[in-house]
């Protein structure tokens, strides 16, 4: 097994006084790609939010260690600087800030260095091309008026520029057409080229995974991981859905 990057133990969390995650155990090694699947309402996004530090969520128990440090007391920006990244399911629109300016600010925060404008622009341009986005995109206000697909591509662009050690993709593929899913998948592939970069891909759709190397698959049902296995689990979900797992969760509950 690869060197450990993230270790979550007995994590319980919820929102507005209601517990959603009932004790999550999860381990991700450096350079590994994990997939988290589960039906709607299982708590997948809650887990992603807890790891990133969503202020709306309350953590009621358990621990999480990220890159050797206790994750839960860290502020959101400290987690980001440490290498955590979340591709949001609904990226927020921020008027008046161009995507490019935002990216530059973010990179400078991440690296603590000033970016070189021309090198940076070149990198952004290459990535835009790779993600089949119009070069003029960089000048548009962050996420403002972006289509669903454009927002997700912009998230991939950020991921590829920020080069996190763990990228969590929260249903980055949902609501996208076939072409957009393929483009997002290409972005993820590009990210995987860095052998030390880890991924936690949250999805309930196998399509995005078909071209990707996957190390482990976790099935989340009703706030608990009910099964962990290899990539073969993806095919099984594709054929049978989550019905079998849901019964198991009920039995366990």
């Amino acid at each position: 097994m690869a060197e450990q990057l993230l270790k979550v133990e007995g994590l319980t969390a919820g929102a507005a006084g209601k517990e959603i995650l009932h004790g999550i155990d999860l381990e991700i090694g450096r350079g590994e790609t994990h997939v988290l699947m589960g039906p709607n309402g299982a708590g997948k996004s809650t887990l992603a939010g807890v790891l990133m530090g969503d202020p709306e969520l309350e953590i009621t128990g358990g621990t999480a260690v990220f890159d050797g440090e206790d994750l839960l007391p860290l502020a959101v920006d400290a987690r980001a600087k440490k290498g955590m990244f979340l591709s949001f399911q609904n990226p927020i629109e921020v008027p008046g800030i161009s995507l490019e300016n935002f990216l530059r600010t973010a990179i400078e925060q991440r690296t603590g260095k000033r970016t070189r404008v021309w090198a940076f622009r070149k990198e952004v341009k290459a990535l835009l091309e790779h993600l089949q986005m119009d070069p003029g995109f960089a000048e548009r206000d962050l996420n403002v008026g972006f289509s669903g697909g454009e927002k997700k591509k912009a998230e991939m662009l950020q991921m590829l520029l920020l080069k996190p050690s763990l990228a969590i993709l929260d249903e980055t593929d949902s609501g996208l057409d076939v072409d957009a899913v393929r483009t997002v998948s290409k972005g993820v592939e590009e990210f995987q080229k860095d052998r030390s970069a880890s991924l936690l891909i949250i999805t309930h759709n196998a399509a995005i995974l078909s071209a990707l190397h996957v190390d482990a698959v976790h099935i989340l049902v009703d706030g608990k991981i009910v099964e962990t296995g290899g990539p073969e689990l993806i095919g099984r979900i594709g054929r049978e859905g989550f019905a079998g797992f849901e019964e198991r969760a009920e039995d366990a509950g």
Binding site: M52, G53, D54, P55, E56, A75, V76, D77, R79, A80, K81, M84, F85, L86, F88, P91, I92, V94, P95, G96, I97, F102, T105, A106, Q109, R110, D141, L142, Q158, L162
Partner: peptide, 28 residues
Amino acid sequence: PQEAVYYLMSRGLSEEDAKALIVSGFAE
């Protein structure tokens, strides 16, 4: 919006910088 601050912080901006960026955008 709190979720905008969270979003920007998740990219490594401090709370202060995130808010300043949002205000700068507002004054754009």
